[in-house]
Structures are given as C-alpha cells and as structure tokens.
Design a protein around this nucleic acid. Sequence first.
DNA 1: GTAACCTACAACCAAATGGTTGTAAATGAA
DNA 2: TTCATTTACAACCATTTGGTTGTAGGTTAC
Lengths: 110, 110
Amino acid sequence: MVVNETREVEIDRLFQALADSTRRDIVTRVITREQSVSDLARQYAMSFAAVQKHVAVLERAMLITKERRGREQIVHGDPSMLRTAARLLEEYEEIWRARAQRIDQILAED
Amino acid sequence: MVVNETREVEIDRLFQALADSTRRDIVTRVITREQSVSDLARQYAMSFAAVQKHVAVLERAMLITKERRGREQIVHGDPSMLRTAARLLEEYEEIWRARAQRIDQILAED
DNA sequence: GTAACCTACAACCAAATGGTTGTAAATGAA
DNA sequence: TTCATTTACAACCATTTGGTTGTAGGTTAC
C-alpha cells in the first residue's frame, strides 16, 4: 500500500512545514536574502523561541539550512525541496489532465 | 504585516490537507476516478469514520467536492486548488531564480 | 416490511502543534 | 573583565489532529 515510506514522511514534513503563514514568510525572506535567526525573530510579533521553533520545523523539512557564523546562526533557503513539492503538485495536475483526455476519448467513441 | 488574511488561511488549510499521506492518496484516487466515501474507506486500514474525517479535511481545503447520489456521497477531485498550490511553489522558485541572477550580476561587476 | 448499506456526528483519547517563560552557555564588544 | 547579544533547550499550556467506538437516520435491495 504505502510504497516509499521514508519519502512519504519527508513529503508529510514538507507540506506540514508550508502549512503555516509565518513559516512561509520565513521561507520567502531567506530565499531572497539569508539572515540570522534573531534577524528573523525581530520581524514577527512572537517570542524568539517561537521563531526558533518555526526555523527548526523548516530545517527538518529541508526547506532551509543553518550555518553557524560566530555567535549567529545564519538561515539559508534551500530550493531543492521546493522544487520537489512543485513537481509533486504538477504530477497531480498531470493525472488530472490524463483523466480528462481519457474521458474525451470515451465521449468521442460512437 | 499579514496582507491577505483569508487567502493565507486558505493556503494554510491547503498545505495542511496535503501533509498527510492518506489524504494525498485519496486525492490521487479521486482525481483519477470519482468514488464514494465507502469505496475509499474500504481501501485503508482504518475506520470509516477516520476516512470520512480525511475527506472532510480535503473538502474544507477545497481539494475535493462531494455530491450526493442516492445513499452514497460521491467524491470528486477539484484541480483548481492544486493548481493554486503548484503556482505558489513556482513563485518561490521564481524568487530564488531572481536572487541567483542578482548575485551573478553583482559578481560580474568589476 | 425488513435487512443491509451508507453516511453523519458525537464523545472520547493520545499525541502533536504553536505558543509562552525561564535558564544557561557561547560569542563579541566595551 | 564585564556586559550585551545570540542561541539552545526545558517545562509548561491550550488547542488541534488523527484516530477510535457508538448511535442514529436515510436509502436501497430483497
């Protein structure tokens, strides 16, 4: 039934990570320009620890990476997982298109 | 801060709905061929009520629609929200590409 | 009419989520 | 050295999530 268990769990984490507007905002910020966790934290109306947790969720989902620079932790965006997600959704669209075509063919038969 | 509140909530629900492998599987099934809730329920190792809840989550996320047919509830896939999600992720990729290009330009200056 | 089937929905439960505060440690700046 | 900054992480809390069982109502088949 479940074909590729670990992959599925990765996808779970990926969409889960994207299912929060603060985290999506963090992603857009860091793919535009990398910045430290406290740089990020200053931009939201929540505690540093909360932002830190959001960053951790994004890291587990492999949407970002962190790099220690002195006392700071620099957050980088990682586009590869975003591409994975985009392709996955395009696959759904492809299935839909194939189905539509199949139906057209059936309707054309007479 | 938050630009389009209701849209953000919709996107939250969309990705939240996709963050579960059972629900993703339901989506692939119903965009391929529409089927009743109990048709779906038979295919998973969980209770009918659990599948019913997953279907409800997908419906709230506007990834599927239900249509009453006699005593059955037929589940249809709805591709529009899938397209919305795919475009959104492509936007992220676009931002990334723009950034990469910007960096290339800076490096080219001398 | 009655039995089987399909759905709706409530109540319950354990675990995860998204937030908080507090404490401690490492680093940089004065 | 001392102080401010940055991060890590634990403990706690309320709410949501993903599952269960049970009950009830509508529809179809025999």
